[in-house]
């Protein structure tokens, strides 16, 4: 069964790059531009891993994490935060919210596949 990864990032190029890497590795990808969009696109769909940016319009990454943890279907979905590198407060907050890993941009193919395969195999 194909495993599904949700990527939430307002950067189209970053979503595209992650899509190229993950789809080629055999994952199915759902793309969302921010937390609001992610919650709409999830809508009952099961995802095996969530990768989310922090700084996003409308609903930022940490708010999205807190919201999704309130949803029974996604209460325990592994979440990886993706960030440009300056979020000491958010890092602590993310850990307390059950985020499993923290990855700084930019990422390369091996780095992304390494972190994704830690939580889900294609």
């Amino acid at each position: 069964m194909t495993k599904t990864v949700l990527i939430v990032d307002d950067s189209a190029s970053l979503r595209q790059l992650a899509g190229i890497v993950l789809r080629r590795a055999g994952y199915e990808l759902i793309e969302a531009v921010d937390g609001d969009d992610a919650l709409i696109k999830l809508n009952g769909r099961k995802v095996h891993l969530i990768i989310s940016d922090i700084n996003m319009p409308h609903m930022d990454g940490m708010t999205f994490v807190k919201k999704i943890r309130q949803l029974p279907d996604h209460k325990f979905a592994p979440i990886v935060m993706l960030t440009a590198g300056f979020h000491e407060t958010s890092r602590q907050e993310a850990r307390e919210s059950g985020v499993k890993a923290w990855m700084e941009k930019p990422f390369d193919r091996d780095k992304l596949l390494n972190i994704v395969s830690r939580f889900v195999q294609a």
Binding site: A94, A101, W102, E104, K111, I115
Partner: peptide, 10 residues
């Protein structure tokens, strides 16, 4: 070039 090596597992 920003440093991009950091991955932290909680």
């Amino acid at each position: 070039k920003p440093d991009s090596d950091e991955i932290t597992f909680f």
